[in-house]
Design a protein around this nucleic acid. Structure first.
Lengths: 334, 334
DNA sequence: GTGAAAGCGCTAACAG
DNA sequence: CTGTTAGCGCTTTCAC
């Protein structure tokens, strides 16, 4: 390509027969006479001129880089479709706004690496996706001192802007749905108890049941895996054979639940209703197909990008929290 | 944090009572008298000095950014665990080497966006993960004109360094394994026929069978999904009821195969042997657990980072292609 | 409208 | 070993 070196704005100016400053103006805000502008643009085109981002950044103080920080355990990141999905959407949302998404994956405890990564990145802003918040982690973002948005509500003491799914609302709706279907003996199989979302989902479901004068048979926390779903469901079947409804807090969990129910000869949805959460591909592969809640990954990413870009543009937040509804996907398991 | 502005090297120099260049030297290569070095480091520490990457980049011509380009369909990226896995590993591998992984996800056909993203990123190098290569795509990387490594072998006419899994070898081994087990009527359920890896896997398996004087009953291509596995397997069962072995080119496909076999009353592994590919979590959740090939995601990422960093350091490649073995994970389906 | 000159923060070449 | 000077590529005063 380039015959040796890359063209600089000096080359463009020379070729167009104008001063460097004129070329710069013409290219940036177009503040130049029409004739000059044309000359400059032609020259730039011919030389295949691409402005050097480092120089720009040096002047403007902005890098247009946004760090997407995911301080979580490796396997978690790899296995969790939520992470993959939101990552893809975020990447697109920021790219569309001419921001460059930079990926900062670090082990949960390794705050040092995270700190270094953020510093080296010269990011203008940060999006944080983590389910385990700690003081040290909070400190890192505080020290980095750049506009930061959290995905999922951070623990109350961390006052950061965030975008979240309405976990509580969806779970409330799940409870209503089960009760409407005539279910009275409902078990909740929850996600990890050191994360925020499972707490919200459990609370929403418990509240939903309470408003109908009911209580869950049991709430069992564990990983977002089929194994957990299977084991928890078996425990419930043993202790509460009258169980006729299960709120599984992820589709993976629901898969395990369905397996356990099948193993014990319970028909879904005839004997027992099951509701999942996430609407990942697996939800259509189960038998029966899973009724579940779809997370608005796309919208979340858009809102996050919007928030952060506004903040970078205007120097202040226009929203400080935004909660998006999950949508009920009715299939055959309720 | 910072009381207003960020500290520059001038501030550090002033505070340490030395010239700017001295401070720079002390901080970079440490070429300064011990006393000076100490003074400078103390001052830097007190001022919380962080060198401005833009300025550095402007001098060195290097950004330390590596673009990870994934021009693929959105859903594919989200649903494919291979992509998520390798992405995570790559991110870590580069971060460890103080390179900044920048994510360039674009729709397959949208080469314009990809071009813009790459340009804006000022990346020093590129890692490309795509399964659908086109002339336009090739052109983009050619024009960008930065050291580039492909994940997976690009189509023959594109002469780029690449790192790949030994798909052919693994598939050959799969064939051997099935034959050893006494299987004689083997179906191959392949991945998409417009990708390279499925071709390699099919070829490997066919060769493996040929070397035992056998031929596959059928080769059926389709998506890397359980649906495809299910349908393809049903078709094989119908046409070739004598089928006693299936090489499924992904674990997802294998899931569908197992479902189909179960539906038709075939016992695995008594009546039919099934081998998968990927060793994703689902492989341990099937019944029976799946025998499959694990892809060396971690090693691939390390090798890629190594290759690219060497190239950036030394101006030339030290390897131009590297093929890593997949490892057989024996479980219960063969 | 345009050109000359200064400077963003840093490093490298050159004297001392 | 250290200070002075120049310059990376660009934008932005400030005169003209």
């Amino acid at each position: 390509m380039a015959n040796g070196q890359k063209a600089t704005i000096r080359d463009v100016a020379k070729r167009a027969g104008v001063a460097v400053s004129t070329a710069s103006r013409a290219l940036s805000h177009g503040s130049a006479s029409k004739a000059t502008r044309e000359k400059v643009f032609r020259a730039a085109g011919e030389l295949n001129f691409v402005p050097n981002p480092a120089a720009r950044q040096l002047m403007s103080g902005r890098s247009n880089i946004v760090a997407i920080a995911i301080p979580e355990h490796t396997d978690f990141i790899f296995r969790d479709m939520f992470v993959a999905g939101i990552l893809g959407e975020l990447s697109r949302a920021f790219s569309e706004r001419r921001m460059l998404p930079f990926l900062a994956l670090t082990e949960l405890q390794d705050t040092e690496s995270l700190e270094r990564l953020l510093r080296d990145s010269s990011a203008d802003g940060v999006v944080v996706l983590s389910f385990h918040y700690s003081r040290q982690l909070a400190q890192v973002f505080h020290d980095f001192d750049k506009p930061t948005v959290f995905i999922g509500r951070p623990f109350p003491r961390m006052r950061y802007p965030y975008v979240d799914v309405d976990n509580e609302g969806a779970a409330y709706c799940a409870a209503e749905l089960l009760v409407e279907r005539g279910r009275r003996n409902i078990g909740i199989i929850a996600g990890p108890d050191d994360m925020m979302a499972p707490k919200q989902r459990t609370m929403g479901c418990v509240n939903g049941l309470a408003d109908q004068g009911m209580k869950p048979l049991a709430v069992i926390s564990g990983e977002y895996t089929a194994e957990h779903g299977f084991e928890a469901c078996e425990r419930i079947l043993e202790q509460y054979p009258e169980v006729d409804g299960v709120f599984a807090q992820s589709d993976q969990i629901a898969v395990g639940v369905l397996q356990a129910l099948a193993k014990h000869g319970r028909q879904v949805p005839n004997d027992v209703s099951v509701i999942g959460f996430d609407d990942f591909p697996v939800a259509t592969m189960t038998n029966p197909k899973l009724t579940t809640f779809a997370q608005p990954l796309h919208d979340m990413a858009q809102v996050i990008a919007e928030m952060l870009c506004w903040r970078l543009e205007h120097g202040e937040w226009n929203t400080v929290a935004q909660v998006l509804p999950a949508s009920l996907i009715k299939r055959d398991s309720v």
